[in-house]
Each structure stands twice: as C-alpha cells, then as structure tokens.
Design a protein around this nucleic acid. Structure first.
Lengths: 225, 225
DNA sequence: ATCCCTTTGTGAAGCGATGCACAAAGTCGG
DNA sequence: CCGACTTTGTGCATCGCTTCACAAAGGGAT
C-alpha cells in the first residue's frame, strides 16, 4: 500500500535524515568559498560518505541535481534547510547550567542554524541570576511558564542524572515533544515524544573497546606498554 | 569461511558494542541497590531496549545467564567491563580547553569508568597554566611528549573546527589510534585510526526535522504558535 | 525423582540501509 | 544539429541488524 515510486514520498529514511546536517555543513562551507556547483563525488568526499549514498539520500528530497553538471550549491542548501525545518527558528531551553550547560549556551553552532537559546534554567540558587551568553539564568520553578510564553519547542537536558527524569516529565507535561538529553539515564517518555541522547562516557567506552582489540589482537589482553 | 557457531567468535557486531555501555550502566545501578540477579526482561527494560535484542547481544559475549533464573549482576558487570576493556585504565588527553573542554575535564562520568584525564592542552596562552579539575593546562607544543610519556591512548578533540584537523594529524603521528571528536568537521585519518564524532548541532537538527513533521503534518509548514 | 514453570540462547524470517553498476538525461564543442 | 562526455537517479543484490517464536536448560515444589 506504499507508493515507493512516488518521488515526493514523505518517508525519508532515518539514516538519511541523520546525514542531511552533514551535507548541509559541507555545502555551507562551499557556499562561503564561492563554489556555485558541486558534483555528488565532491560533496560526498567533503562529507565523508560514499557518493552513491549521497545521491540516494538527496533523491529522497526530490530531483535537485542536473545530470552532467551536479548540484547548485545555494539551491541545495535551501532545499536541505527547508527539509530539516531550519528555515523557521526554533526556541530552545537549556535546563541545568553546570559546566556542560554553560558550554552549550556558549556554543556557536546552535545559534548559527536557526536555533535560539530562549531560556536557561537551574535549580541551584547559587547560579540562578547569573548572566551566561547574554542570558539570565532562571529558577527551574518557572520552567513551564518559560516554555509556554517563549514558544520553546526543544529542550536540552544538561542536569545531573538524578534530576533528569523529573525535569523531563515536567517538560513533557508542558507540551514539549523534542528533547536532547545529556544526562546519563534512559528517559521514559510517552509515545510521540522524541528523545535523542548524547552520552560522552558511552562514546569513550566504545573507543576503548576497539582500542583494546587493536592492541591485544584476537586473543590476548595487553597492558598499556 | 566464517565460524558463526563458534560461541567465542571475536566478531561482536558494532551495534552490540554500542549498547554494552548502556547495559553496564543499568547493571551498576542494580548492583548498588543490592540486586543480585536480573532477568533479560528487567534489564532490557532498564536499558530501554527489547529483551530479545538484549539476549542476543549478551550471547555474543558467551553464555553467562542461567535459564529459569537470569543473569548474576556482579558477574555480568565484570564480563561486560572486561569485554569493553574497562578493567584496565585508559589515559585520556583533552585538547582544547574552551567551555566544552572544561566541561569534559570536570565530567565525572569519565573518571568513574576506568578513564583518567592525563592531560589538558590548549594553544591559547591565556588558559595555559590554569588549573582545571586538579590538572594544569599545558601548551599544545608539548602534545607529543605528553602523549608519549603518559601513555595516552585516547584523545578528545574539543578545539575550534579550524584547528581540529591539524591537531588530529599530530595526534595520529604520535601513535594515537582512538579519537573522540567534538569539533564540527569531518576528520580525515589513515586506516586503522578510529574516530567517533559527537556533534551537538547535528542532534538538534535531527530533532528539528521530526518536530517539524509532527507540527506540520505531511504537507503544510506551521509557525510556532 | 519427576513434573512444571521460568527464562535463556538461537534459528529463521523480516526489514532497512548500503553500494554497485548502468541507463537516462543533460551539457558542450564542433 | 549531432555526437561524445559527464553526472545524476535508481534497480538490484547484498549485508547486517532486529524481532519473533520456540526448543533447550535449569530451578523448585511435591
């Protein structure tokens, strides 16, 4: 009952969605350097993927290339931005203003792509009132009103693990359905709420696994000599 | 020519490796709470995965469960730790001591699992010499000697995008083969070097995509009202 | 000792992503 | 206007991961 041949099929594969921001970044770099047109080969190289994969990914958005020539950089930037929803601006609230929260608030990559930090919240009276990245840190008590009044639709959780689920519940109750979670816990949320997780220590552990493999070969364990 | 029935097959699927740290965290929590034994169903619940997947994942490590009973928590913690290489301790260097680098240096999750921050490096004379998380920030010039003398085998890149590739090249030349990259660039490295990438703005963009879908339905674009 | 109940470990089917290879489609020079 | 060349878009085979469903294995009660 699907219509796979329909070119404007709205079901873009998750794996493709995850790569679109990568292409977008590469394209923005090219646009800044004045490149007008790019082939799938070159763009794939810049994004670190296979060119066939790139073409298939882009084909899910429509036929925006010209055979024999390539893709118009500006046009493709616009199409991908639109598809990702970056043509509108998104109000983001960061909950938890510890070291990580501060780093995120100051991170340029947020602002640059249609994301606006619209609120910083914390439970610690010590940090409430501080100015960070031009924003006043507010008390977690006003979480719901901040979300509602400033149209926050994405919340970044940078709280300690213990507080994360409780904040998450409140945020969801306030109507937010997109959460980026930095706390090292598995959040439980109702259907329809999207949680993406970034876990620094998990990434390190994966690296350690491969490193151990490389060092020790298939059978022996090796000390770091 | 493979030996898929050999239970101690050393080829653990990448997807499984990525979940082992998740199981490990859940198990550590249970161990702290004094739980002695856990079923695949319960552990899967705690880790936020399907129980069949959990069992298949664990089966790649060996047969560590008892039918009719479940898994011994302590024992499984040990086995997973060993498999991930967390029974030895890893010296990690963090390059780039901006907001993010500071946050990482102070992040407790590193130390807690066999990772030791053995060096903080930066190019900015303003921050060189600062004490952060009990460590002295050193100048990037001594990168190679820090890596060599302290046995650093994993490097975390938290530099600006522009500096990342250059630092990466030096780090690789110094013999490091595991890199955790926070800079928003595609690093090019020789074969045999492992790079894992954490990109905050990409995660946000993926969320924005799904948020737009939810808000707008299949066809219309919607303003955030 | 036997039977029943629970839970593991895994064969097999299903599903989505990847990458090859090529026809279709367009550009450009003559 | 035509033919050679370039590059896209995609059908198809393949691969790896997920999920189902169940036989095998162990524990505990009687």
């Amino acid at each position: 009952m699907k219509s796979p041949s329909q070119s404007r099929d709205r079901g873009i594969p998750e794996a493709t969605v995850a790569r679109l921001p990568l292409y977008l970044r590469a394209l923005n770099g090219m646009a800044e350097r004045g490149v007008a047109t790019v082939s799938s080969e070159d763009l794939a190289m810049a994004a670190g993927v296979n060119s066939a994969k790139l073409r298939k990914d882009l084909s899910h958005l429509g036929s925006y290339g010209t055979r024999g020539v390539g893709y118009d950089v500006e046009y493709l930037v616009y199409q991908i931005s639109r598809e990702l929803g970056l043509t509108q601006d998104w109000a983001v609230a960061i909950v938890g203003v510890g070291n990580l929260g501060r780093a995120l608030a100051n991170y340029g990559g947020f602002v640059s792509r249609g994301f606006r930090v619209a609120g910083l919240l914390d439970a610690d009276p010590e940090v409430v009132g501080d100015d960070i990245a031009g924003l006043n840190v507010e008390h977690i008590d006003v979480l719901e009103s901040v979300i509602e009044r400033r149209g926050v639709s994405i919340v970044v959780l940078a709280t300690p693990a213990m507080a994360a689920q409780e904040v998450c519940d409140r945020v969801v109750a306030a109507g937010v359905t997109s959460i980026l979670n930095f706390a090292p816990v598995v959040l439980s949320v109702p259907d329809g709420v999207d949680v993406r997780k970034v876990d620094l220590s998990i990434e390190l552990q994966i690296l350690a696994f491969h490193e151990q493999r490389k060092a020790g070969g298939p059978l022996m364990a090796v000390d770091s000599q």
